[in-house]
C-alpha cells in the first residue's frame, strides 16, 4: 500500500473514532438525565396525572384575571422598574472598575486573584438572598431591592467584563505601549472602546434579567411588585395573582423590546 493510501486510511479511522466518541458521549448524557429524573419521581405516572389535575384546578381559579386591582399594583410595578434600572446602573458602575482590576491584561496576578475571589464570592449569593441581607441592613423597601440587584449585577458583570478585557487583541495594547500610553490611557482608549459593544450588550442582558429578578424581591420585603405576588398567593386570590403575572409579563416584553431597540440602534461594531 502506498504511503498516501495509508495516510488516507489513518484519517478515516480517526474520523470514525471521533464519531463513536461523540455518540458515546451523547448516550452517556441521556442516561445521566434519565437517572436524575428518576430520582425525582419523574417516571411515576400516578403522580404526574394527579399533578395535571391540580394544575387544571389552579388554572381554573386563576381565570378570569381580576383587573380591579390594576390601580393598586401600578405603583408597585413602577417601583419594580425603578429598582431594576437603579440596581443595574449602580452594579455596572462598580463592575467596570472591578472588571479592569480583575483582568490580567493590565494588572498583576496578585491583584487579579483577590478581585476575582471577591467577585466570585459576590456571585455565590443568589439575588433573593442579597435582598434578605439588604433588608436586614437598610430595612424594608425598594432601597434594599436596589442594593440587592446591584450586588448581584456586580457578581456577573465584573466577571464578564474581566474576560472581555482579557480577550482584547494584544497587538493593540502593544501598539499603545509603543506610543507611551499609561495604564489609564489603555483603560480609556483601548479597554473601553474595544469592548464597548460587548459591554453594552451584557449590560442590557443584565437589565433584562434584573427586571425579572426585581419582580420577586418583594417576596422578602425588598420593594416592588413581589409584595403583591406574595400577598395574593398567600390569600389564595389567584385571579388577582393572574393580573399581577400578566402585568409582569407585559413589563418583561416591553423591556426586551426596549433592549432590542437599543441593540439595533447602538451596536454597530462588526
Amino acid at each position: 500500500m502506498s504511503a498516501k493510501r495509508v495516510a488516507v486510511r489513518g484519517t478515516w479511522q480517526t474520523l470514525e473514532r471521533r464519531r463513536w466518541r461523540e455518540l458515546g458521549f451523547s448516550l452517556g448524557l441521556m442516561a445521566l438525565l434519565a437517572w436524575l429524573l428518576n430520582g425525582m419521581g419523574f417516571f411515576e405516572a400516578g403522580r404526574l396525572i394527579q399533578g395535571a389535575f391540580n394544575l387544571a384546578r389552579f388554572a381554573h381559579e386563576m381565570f378570569p384575571p381580576d383587573v380591579r386591582i390594576l390601580p393598586t399594583i401600578t405603583g408597585a410595578l413602577l417601583e419594580t422598574i425603578q429598582m431594576a434600572f437603579a440596581g443595574t446602573i449602580l452594579g455596572f458602575l462598580l463592575s467596570f472598575p472591578l472588571g479592569v482590576l480583575g483582568s490580567r491584561t493590565l494588572f498583576p496576578a496578585g491583584v487579579v486573584a483577590v478581585v476575582r475571589f471577591l467577585v466570585a464570592a459576590i456571585r455565590t449569593v443568589p439575588s433573593l438572598l442579597w435582598a434578605v441581607l439588604m433588608v436586614i441592613v437598610v430595612g424594608l423597601g425598594p432601597l434594599a431591592g436596589t442594593l440587592a440587584l446591584a450586588f448581584y449585577t456586580v457578581g456577573y458583570l465584573a466577571k464578564l467584563y474581566a474576560e472581555l478585557f482579557e480577550a482584547i487583541d494584544p497587538e493593540i495594547l502593544e501598539a499603545m505601549r509603543g506610543v507611551g500610553a499609561k495604564r489609564r490611557h489603555l483603560i480609556r482608549f483601548v479597554l473601553w472602546p474595544e469592548s464597548a459593544n460587548a459591554i453594552l450588550s451584557q449590560l442590557l442582558f443584565m437589565l433584562e434579567y434584573n427586571v425579572r429578578a426585581s419582580t420577586v424581591l418583594g417576596l422578602v420585603g425588598a420593594g416592588g411588585i413581589g409584595f403583591y405576588m406574595q400577598a395574593y398567593l398567600g390569600t389564595m386570590a389567584y385571579s388577582r395573582l393572574t393580573t399581577v403575572l400578566l402585568a409582569v409579563l407585559l413589563l418583561v416584553i416591553g423591556m426586551d423590546a426596549l433592549s432590542a431597540w437599543v441593540r439595533r440602534r447602538y451596536l454597530l461594531h462588526p
Binding site: D169, E171, I172, L173, E174, A175, M176, G178, V179, G180, A181, K182, H185, F189, V190, W192, P193, E194, A196, N197, H269
Partner: peptide, 21 residues
C-alpha cells in the same frame, strides 16, 4: 505592528491623537 494595532472603536482622528500620548 503587523495588524496595525489601531483601536477599531475610535475614530481615525482619535487614533492619530493617541500618537501624542
Amino acid at each position: 505592528p503587523q495588524q496595525l494595532g489601531l483601536v477599531r472603536g475610535l475614530t481615525a482622528l482619535e487614533n492619530v491623537l493617541l500618537g501624542s500620548l
